[in-house]
Amino acid sequence: MRRWATYLGIVVLVATVAPVLGGGPAAAAPGGPSGVSAAAEGLTIRVTWSPPTDLTGVTGYRVTAVPVGPSVDVPVGAGSAVLTGGRPNTPYTAQVAGGSLRAVTPARLLDTRSGLGAPAGATHQVDLQVTGRGGIPASGVGSVALNVTVTQPAGAGFVTVYPSGTLRPTASNLNYVAGQTVPNLVVVPVGADGRVTLYSSAAAHLIADTAGWFSTTATAAPSAGLFHGLTPARLADTRIDLGGPTPDRGGVLDLQVTGAGGVPATGVSAVVLNTTVAGSTGPGFVTVYLSGQPAPTASNLNFVAGQVVANRAIVPVSTDGKVSFLNSNGLTRWSST
């Protein structure tokens, strides 16, 4: 039988996520940091704070300069952070916040090729409604995780994703050359109107799929959505049939993730995986999704013949501890890390 895909490998990159607890009254939100202060040192902002005494439910902090400037994520228990890349002569307010992570089945929110979420046609900017769509709640959302893809750009450039209604930062989430298709997983705070803005420096088609969302500090749960970092471990590599053989064109690999690579056998609702494709014989895409469910109309990786490309994915885990990988077509080899 002819192989259209050859190699797929998966490495647990950073996380498992604890399940949402059912039954009983709603738990109180975790305590927030206090005594937040900031000092400017050139274009660098040094932020300090006092962590709460009770760290139950605190999964880490996102430190942000407002209006949109540099931001950084730091682990639970941290009391300081350094933000770089500020703009000269710009006043900033430092914010320190935390929230619980919820993974969702990927759903497409934006595709300018078809007019989904924005008028059809190549564009430079889209203000995209994210709350209340694609598994994202209508309220209580601090940030969203989106798999953003640029395709058919008219020239070389970059994409920046940021909260709507705020100044566009000087950072980029995607970089591309003319005609290239590039995806990347982006975590971005949500604007006050429930939207995020996608800006492309060159006219291009933009695609965005949901991957998950983070609660606000006020709505964070003390035990659900806890983020646990792990030492990277390879769970699959189809070059050596680790985790299973490479699926044929249109085929699916169901991979056991719980109980492997440091992921607990129970109490896991989602995993963060770094997935890589290598040695493809033609263009295509890979979709990573909840095992046992129909494949969503979203993609995590896009590639052309011979390309090696990687991307991170936040994926819900099925009741039997598996996630699935769809091989679209035209591949010869899959590799994931």
Score class of each variant (00 low, 15 high):
10 I>F: 02
13 L>K: 03
14 V>H: 10
16 T>E: 12
17 V>L: 14
18 A>L: 08
22 G>L: 11
22 G>N: 04
23 G>M: 04
26 A>I: 04
26 A>L: 05
34 S>C: 03
41 E>I: 01
46 R>C: 04
49 W>R: 00
53 T>G: 13
54 D>F: 10
54 D>T: 05
61 Y>S: 15
62 R>N: 11
72 V>S: 02
73 D>H: 08
75 P>V: 09
81 A>T: 09
82 V>M: 13
83 L>H: 01
86 G>V: 14
94 A>R: 02
96 V>N: 11
100 S>R: 02
102 R>G: 01
103 A>N: 06
105 T>E: 06
106 P>M: 07
108 R>N: 05
112 T>V: 05
113 R>N: 04
115 G>K: 08
117 G>Q: 14
118 A>V: 08
122 A>S: 14
124 H>Q: 11
129 Q>L: 04
134 G>I: 15
134 G>T: 02
135 G>D: 12
138 A>R: 15
154 A>L: 05
163 P>R: 01
172 S>N: 09
178 A>I: 02
178 A>Q: 15
179 G>C: 06
182 V>M: 08
183 P>I: 03
193 D>Q: 14
194 G>Q: 09
197 T>L: 03
197 T>V: 06
199 Y>F: 13
200 S>L: 14
200 S>N: 10
203 A>G: 13
203 A>R: 13
203 A>W: 00
204 A>W: 01
205 H>Y: 08
205 H>V: 14
206 L>I: 09
208 A>F: 04
220 A>P: 08
221 A>K: 00
222 P>A: 07
225 G>Y: 02
226 L>A: 04
226 L>S: 03
228 H>P: 00
228 H>R: 13
228 H>E: 01
230 L>A: 13
236 A>N: 03
236 A>W: 02
237 D>I: 07
239 R>E: 07
244 G>L: 14
247 P>I: 09
250 G>L: 05
260 A>W: 05
260 A>C: 10
262 G>P: 09
262 G>I: 08
274 N>G: 03
274 N>P: 00
277 V>Y: 14
277 V>E: 07
280 S>R: 06
281 T>S: 15
288 V>C: 04
296 P>H: 03
297 T>Y: 10
306 G>C: 07
310 A>I: 09
321 G>D: 11
326 L>R: 14
327 N>M: 15
327 N>Y: 09
331 L>C: 06
332 T>E: 05
333 R>I: 15
335 S>E: 12
336 S>E: 06
